[in-house]
Amino acid sequence: MSTDTANHDHHSHDEGGAHGSLKGYLIGFGLSVVLTAIPFWLVMADVIANPTTAAFVILGLALVQIVVHMVYFLHMNPKSEGGWSMMALIFTLILVVITLTGSIWVMYHLNNNMMPMSPGVTSAAP
């Protein structure tokens, strides 16, 4: 068997995308723990007085944690699987945003249009 034929029999693991290492998993785990502990501490210690600000800080940390999970555990990057996994993620996010926005819009309008009339009011028109 020639060396050319022998070299074609070996397959590289790099072709299928990035695989995780113990160091990468430990970094992801550490970041996940920290990104979970910080919002927990913020809420339990009542560090932020304004509830709106607290909600935005917690949601921001949640988004960071989602990115950490995608990078360190799902190994998603623009180069993995020729970019198709990133395109699938973007498509999924667009569908989720459309679904959530549409649902909130429908619920808002149902709430406004289906409210019972006050006593003494005979028509909904002004």
Rank of each mutant, 00 (worst) to 15 (best):
V34L: 15
E15S: 10
G30V: 01
V33Q: 02
W41I: 09
H19V: 04
S32V: 00
L22A: 12
L22C: 05
S32Q: 04
A37T: 04
G28T: 03
L26H: 00
T36M: 13
D14I: 11
H13L: 11
T36W: 00
F40R: 07
H11V: 07
Y25P: 05
G30F: 04
S12T: 13
S21H: 06
L35K: 00
V33E: 00
G17H: 11
V34I: 15
V33G: 03
P39M: 05
F40S: 08
H13D: 12
G17I: 07
S21E: 05
G24L: 11
V33L: 14
A18N: 09
E15M: 11
V34W: 06
G30M: 06
L31I: 07
L22H: 02
G16H: 15
F40C: 01
I27V: 15
G30E: 03
T36N: 03
P39D: 08
P39F: 08
G20Y: 07
D14R: 14
G16D: 15
G16C: 07
T36K: 00
L35V: 01
A37P: 03
F40T: 08
L35F: 15
L31E: 04
H19T: 02
F40I: 04
A18R: 15
G28P: 01
E15W: 03
G17Y: 03
L31P: 01
G30T: 05
I27M: 14
Y25E: 13
K23M: 13
L22K: 13
V34E: 02
F40E: 06
A18V: 12
Y25M: 08
V34K: 01
V34T: 12
T36V: 08
L22V: 14
T36R: 05
D14S: 14
A18Y: 03
I27Y: 04
K23F: 10
L22G: 11
V33I: 15
L26S: 12
F29L: 15
S12D: 13
S32N: 13
V34N: 01
A37H: 04
Y25N: 11
F29I: 09
G28H: 10
F40N: 05
L35N: 06
L31D: 01
S21G: 15
G28C: 09
I38R: 02
S32L: 03
H13V: 01
F40M: 10
L26G: 10
L26Q: 10
A18Q: 04
L31V: 09
H19W: 08
T36Q: 04
G24E: 15
G16A: 14
Y25L: 14
A18M: 09
L31R: 04
H11Q: 10
F40A: 12
G30S: 10
G17L: 08
K23V: 14
G17A: 09
L31G: 09
G17S: 06
G17N: 02
W41V: 12
I38T: 09
G30W: 00
A37G: 02
E15F: 10
K23Q: 14
H11K: 12
F40Y: 13
H19S: 13
P39S: 12
F29C: 11
W41P: 00
G20C: 09
S12C: 07
G16I: 01
G24M: 08
L22T: 14
E15G: 00
L35R: 06
G24F: 03
I38Y: 05
Y25S: 11
G30D: 05
F40V: 07
G16R: 14
D14V: 11
K23D: 12
